[in-house]
Amino acid sequence: MTPGNRRIEREPTDAEIEAIVAEAIAAEAALARTEAAPPSSAIVWWRCQMRARQEATRAADRPITIVHALAIACGVGLAVSLIGSTAAGLRGSSGWLAEVYRSLATTAAPLAAIDLTSRWVTLPMTAMLISAVVATVAAYFIFADE
């Protein structure tokens, strides 16, 4: 007689009910023990560690996210105000552009006469170029360590 098909004709007493229930659940618990295949403790421990680390990293990221958002908001505000003031300036005096162009043309005219193949020009230019490259590489190595 199993718990599942047990039949009691009269009203069962509390003790009988308790016996039926205890027997049924004990059988089910025994079955559950055979079915149980929880992951190994090492895997669960590792997963918990990884998740705790991820949550710690996420928590540390939160302040920088807020700072980023504030910086972007400030940048957008600055850009909008610059565009607004520039547009107002352009509307107010559109003739100044022509003046700038004329003065640039006057200034640049003597530059066209310079002989670019002359060593008095190429030597300083080369030195400046090499300095710029060396400075960039040096800056990279200085800040890459940090």
């Binding site: 199993t2 718990p3 599942g4 098909n5 049924a24 059988a27 089910e28 079955l31």
Partner: peptide, 19 residues
């Protein structure tokens, strides 16, 4: 699903259904 074994399948199903 339950594993194979010498247990009363009908009774077990009754218990599970009731539970």
């Amino acid at each position: 699903p339950a594993p194979e074994g010498p247990v009363d399948a009908e009774g077990r199903a009754d218990v599970r259904r009731a539970f």
